[in-house]
Amino acid sequence: MTVAGGIDIGASATKVALLNERGDLLGSAVLRSGVDFALSASRGLDQALKEAGLEPHQVRVIFTCGYGRNNVPFAHQTRTEIAAHATGAYRHFPRALTVIDIGGQDNKIIKVDADGRRTSFKMNRKCAAGTGAFLEEMALRLDLDLRHFDSLARRAEDEAILGSYCTVFTASEVLSKIREGVAVEALIKGLFRSVVKRVLEMDLMEGQVVMTGGVVAHNPYLLEMMQESLGQPVLVPPRPQLTGAEGAAWLALKSLAQDNRQAGA
């Protein structure tokens, strides 16, 4: 059995995926990235190996992606998280796609053609508006547990109208709404809408839309709101937070297969 690893070291979380040559997920891990990316990658790999019942030497090749991709000494190659998410999404849905990845620190809109080749991509400007960091910041200000956001938003009977341009501006608007006595559920739904609006401002959505990343993994109601805004179904891979790691592992497998073909040629 050939096993490849993908490690996506994001600004908030490190994700690890181990795939066999058919692309089956053998083991995975999600942990905080912290301040030592190499250590997080190493711990995440250990967890994923344990889950898969594998030994380290059984992993033939490891590709990394994400902010910390260059900080992992045992990685064989790196790819950008844009390549990894595009590959990870296309692996599950092989057709022309627009991939929306909402990560901890940045958002990406990636267009992929029917053959899985990227045709364009956009990342958010130098601002956290619309990202996971935006929701984390709001949770802190509201003194709420981020894990409760999804259920709170889902229960909302109303929706606070909030901007999507700037995290600080939106925080001021939230304060005004609190003064006005707006229900917390309506505030959270407004924050989710702010994320959706920010994403839709970034690029045109073409073809089938797929959402990936930690924010959609933990907040399925945000996905429903995105579908409602777009007026079309939005697909999500089985483990959206692992999409980048799976994509990196899949790219590693492809690279290995190519090397083998060249060696055999």
Binding site: T80, I82, A83, R117, R118, T119, F121, M123, K126
Partner: peptide, 22 residues
């Protein structure tokens, strides 16, 4: 203050990856 090294590098790397794919 208006420029992020990390974002610029990732954008450039992803752009060249895209050219390589093409």
């Amino acid at each position: 203050r208006c420029f992020s090294d990390e974002q610029a590098k990732t954008n450039i790397e992803a752009f060249v990856e895209q050219l390589e794919e093409k």
